[in-house]
């Protein structure tokens, strides 16, 4: 078993749709809970990680310039991360298909093996 990180991305519009009203928010959380519970039950969840807030700043380059997050015009925003365990990259990618974030056309899950150096 190796560790993989899931980086969840979504468009600001989809995020707004999911979290805008208390009802939508509750429905979305319910979906996430079902999914994370299933990962855990099958021994794949190493850490559920955390969702990330929308606001942000970016420190860039050797000039160390701080700018507001690139979120305003971005199509996809990182919404959070989890760390999971799977046999190999193929399995990890297969498991990612169940992510509730993928119910939105703009949603994506980036699956990256955690490198052992």
């Amino acid at each position: 078993m190796s560790d993989f990180i899931y980086i969840y991305r979504n468009s600001p519009a989809a995020r707004e749709a999911n979290m805008g009203t208390p009802e939508a928010r509750q429905k979305s959380m319910q979906r996430w809970m079902t999914w994370l519970r299933e990962l855990e039950a099958n021994g794949h969840l190493k850490s559920a990680g955390q969702p990330l807030d929308r606001d942000g700043k970016v420190a860039r380059g050797n000039s160390r310039t701080i700018t507001d997050g690139p979120f305003v015009e971005a199509k996809d925003v990182i919404g959070g991360y989890s760390i999971i365990q799977a046999k190999d990259l193929a399995e990890a990618a297969e498991l990612a298909k169940g992510c509730p974030g993928l119910e939105d056309p703009d949603g994506s899950v980036e699956v990256r093996p955690v490198a052992s150096m």
């Binding site: 509750q26 959380m29 319910q30 996430w32 809970m33 994370l36 519970r37 855990e40 969840l45 850490s47 559920a48 990680g49 955390q50 969702p51 959070g80 989890s82």
Partner: peptide
Amino acid sequence: TRLLETEWTAAAVVEE
């Protein structure tokens, strides 16, 4: 524990 650790689910678990 796992579900309470993360903001993905903590509120939903408490709600439940």
